[in-house]
């Protein structure tokens, strides 16, 4: 059994709390890094993180790419999407196929 967490700025993700999902609101890159690593160690299976915060710590996100658990998934925030999530899909296509064929 794994837990679910959302990481993001308070104005965007506080609403997730109503559904019983753990909400964390770090602000500085150091804090974000620590929060993600802590969550990964602490039996969290899915970590949703807003693209705004994810863009500050790309290498931490990338570290969990080739592990099955946890799944670090980017979501847009209330300022809209930065398209990083889509970019990541495109990147994995490029990695697998060699060029972007879609």
């Amino acid at each position: 059994m794994y837990k679910v967490a959302v990481v993001g700025d308070k104005d965007s993700v506080l609403v997730f709390k109503a559904l019983g999902i753990d909400v964390l609101t770090p602000t500085s890159p150091d804090e974000i890094r620590r929060v993600i690593d802590d969550l990964a160690r602490d039996q969290y299976g899915v970590i949703f993180i807003t693209e705004q915060l994810a863009s500050l710590v790309p290498e931490t996100i990338a570290r969990y790419d080739d592990e099955m658990i946890p799944a670090v998934i980017l979501i847009p925030s209330n300022q809209g999407t930065l398209n990083i999530g889509m970019d990541r899909i495109d990147r994995s296509v490029e990695k697998a196929v060699g060029s972007n064929i879609l």
């Binding site: 059994m1 794994y2 837990k3 609403v15 709390k17 559904l19 019983g20 299976g45 099955m68 658990i69």
Partner: peptide, 13 residues
């Protein structure tokens, strides 16, 4: 209002 959620979500993988 959001302090005490009624449900707790966990995920089975």
């Amino acid at each position: 209002a959001l302090a005490m959620p009624k449900t707790k979500v966990s995920v089975d993988i």
